[in-house]
């Protein structure tokens, strides 16, 4: 019998209700929902995200343009919402890359153990020695500047975290009775791994993936800001802040402020949601009491 190690595995509705009772998680959920909604309503805007001359150049926030316009007369609100679409996709795909590679690697390393497990985890340790942003820069630079490069770079940088979590989960799950039971009834090792071990490690991976979204959005935007990610004129938060950099001292604060708030609140949203999920799914994992 698989032991119910997490609420998520056995009673998803209970977990959901607990999540909604967690104030921190709800605040996070609201931020995330807001940006998701924003990304969906972009087509409803009277302006195009790339439309130059949608208004006068550099007009401050006002009735026609709630967030003002930039140096090409583009509507900043539309561009911020469209940037959310880019950032959310980038985050999802980058976390997807880390997940799809990191989870099986770490899981198999923990489940099979031995020399294979050792080698895999040593390689992950090496990757963790690089500051994430610096490693992402090196990878994106090698791939050539562009949004896809940034996404792949962020994805690769995230692999060791997932591998490490999955590894420690599997090492403890491996000793459980239900794994022994699987062996006893003659299930193939890979079946035990895929059907019984992986699902039981679901909770910490979900928490890490949520926190990872925030980190991925931040790193991808940083790469774009430096010039290694999205390229102008694409409406992307890092690019927009980079565009607005030259207008800071002359006082056109709105070009940088709104995309900046967008990055900060979306990251905060995923961080809060991740923290809340951790509290709900597995109280033992809580870092702060």
């Amino acid at each position: 019998m698989p032991e119910p190690t997490t609420l998520a595995r056995t009673r998803p509705t209970t977990a959901w209700r607990l999540l909604l009772r967690n104030r921190i998680a709800v605040v996070g959920l609201v931020f995330v929902a807001l940006w998701t909604l924003g990304a969906l309503v972009v087509p409803l805007s009277p302006y195009g995200a790339a439309e130059t001359g949608a208004g006068p150049l550099l007009s401050p926030p006002g009735a026609d343009h709630l967030f003002g316009t930039d140096n090409f007369g583009r509507d900043i609100l539309t561009r911020v919402l469209a940037g959310g679409r880019v950032s959310l996709w980038t985050g999802l795909l980058a976390v997807g890359i880390s997940l799809v590679i990191g989870v099986p690697l770490g899981g198999l390393a923990g489940f099979l153990g031995g020399r294979f497990g050792n080698v895999v985890m040593r390689v992950m340790d090496v990757l963790l020695a690089f500051p994430p942003l610096v490693l992402a820069m090196a990878i994106a630079a090698s791939l050539g500047a562009g949004m896809t490069s940034a996404m792949v770079a962020v994805g690769i940088v995230g692999i060791p975290e997932f591998a490490r979590i999955m590894y420690s989960q599997t090492v403890s799950l491996r000793e459980r009775d239900f794994v022994d039971a699987g062996h006893a009834i003659g299930l193939p090792r890979m079946t035990i791994f895929a059907r019984h071990v992986v699902p039981n490690a679901f909770a910490p991976i979900l928490v890490r993936a949520t926190l990872g979204m925030g980190y991925a959005i931040l790193t991808a935007a940083s790469l774009s800001f430096i010039g290694l990610g999205a390229q102008p004129p694409l409406a992307e938060w890092g690019v927009m802040i980079s565009d607005g950099r030259g207008y800071i001292i002359s006082g056109e604060w709105w070009m940088t402020t709104f995309p900046g708030i967008a990055i900060a609140t979306s990251i905060l949203g995923f961080n809060l949601l991740g923290d809340g999920l951790r509290d709900v799914l597995d109280p033992r994992l809580r870092t702060s009491r």
Binding site: S222, F225, I241, G260, A264, I267
Partner: peptide
């Protein structure tokens, strides 16, 4: 985000 905080 550091780059935004710095500009602000």
């Amino acid at each position: 985000p550091l780059f935004w905080l710095g500009l602000m």
